[in-house]
């Protein structure tokens, strides 16, 4: 990596400045200030309903913000932008399309020539481990395979920013672990800025260079935790004493909120 690229790596790709979002009378979050650097993996955790999905949708330009602004590479985001891909929690696969067609659909919508689609799709299908299932329909795939299909569709766009909304929430523990390390491997091959929303604290600490904790009602950034774990992250990271330490820290931070919510209910 050249010195210039190194320096570039420190520049910020996404800036979130004083952002707030309301649905009618409901203020979901307010005064969010965050910066995501180039080729950085940031994970976002927070209690259910605190607005993680909403924030991701705002970053992708699917929803307008009510206060503040979101910039990607300096441009204010008002609508979905080239170079930014989103992996949906609901997979977002079209049941009438095969794996091949689903994976290539993003490129097709972007007006990519047939030859380019024919070249890239098999590569990413293979990369996410769906080789041999090119002609299967989503109903013939397991949850984890559907998720990988959605991931492949986002990756074929070769984005510089990848937004992922609880991408592994619908898969079993083993598949989830496999997918986590596969994703990290893919990221090492093609580093990009990754914003990763998850319910799992383990996953947040394992995957993230930094962990953002959202809290409060309306929520805002409660803490940003630097995860100073050695790279590359793999299974051995899970046994690292520092991993346990950070995980406990995030857990305690979040737990306060959960308890508070319980008291509110009682």
């Amino acid at each position: 990596m050249s010195a210039e690229a190194e320096a570039d790596g420190q520049s910020s790709r996404i800036e979130i400045n004083g952002v707030g979002k309301r649905y009618g009378d409901l203020q979901v979050f307010k005064d969010i200030n965050l910066e995501f650097r180039e080729r950085e993996i940031v994970t976002i955790v927070g209690p259910s309903g605190c607005g993680k999905t909403t924030l991701l949708r705002c970053i992708d330009g699917l929803l307008p913000v009510n206060e503040g602004e979101i910039r990607i590479e300096g441009d204010v985001i008002t609508q979905p932008r080239e170079g930014v891909s989103m992996v949906f929690q609901h997979f977002g696969l079209f049941p009438w399309k095969t794996v091949r067609q689903n994976v290539g659909y993003g490129l097709k919508l972007a007006g990519a020539p047939r030859a380019e689609i024919a070249e890239k799709v098999p590569y990413y299908v293979d990369l996410v481990g769906l080789k041999g299932f090119e002609d299967a329909y989503p109903y013939q795939l397991s949850g984890g395979m559907q998720q990988r299909c959605g991931l492949a569709r986002a990756l074929t766009m070769e984005p510089s920013v990848l937004l992922m909304d609880e991408p592994f929430a619908a898969v079993d523990a083993q598949t989830r672990e496999i997918l986590q390390f596969e994703l990290l491997k893919i990221w090492r091959m093609r580093p990009m800025t990754m914003v990763f929303v998850t319910h799992s604290i383990e996953e947040a600490v394992l995957m993230g260079d930094r962990v953002v904790v959202l809290k409060g009602r309306p929520s805002s950034v409660f803490e940003v935790i630097d995860v100073d774990l050695p790279a590359p992250r793999d299974r051995s990271t899970l046994a690292h004493p520092r991993f346990t330490e950070i995980r406990e820290h995030v857990w305690t931070t979040l737990m306060d909120e959960v308890r508070a919510a319980e008291y509110e209910l009682n």
């Binding site: 992708d60 699917l62 979905p80 989103m86 949906f88 977002g92 079209f94 659909y105 993003g106 919508l109």
Partner: peptide, 16 residues
């Protein structure tokens, strides 16, 4: 709505 969200995210043209 999920289908439409995907369309929007990938900036699908109206004819698609």
């Amino acid at each position: 709505p999920e289908y439409l969200e995907v369309c929007k995210a990938y900036r699908a043209k109206a004819r698609y």
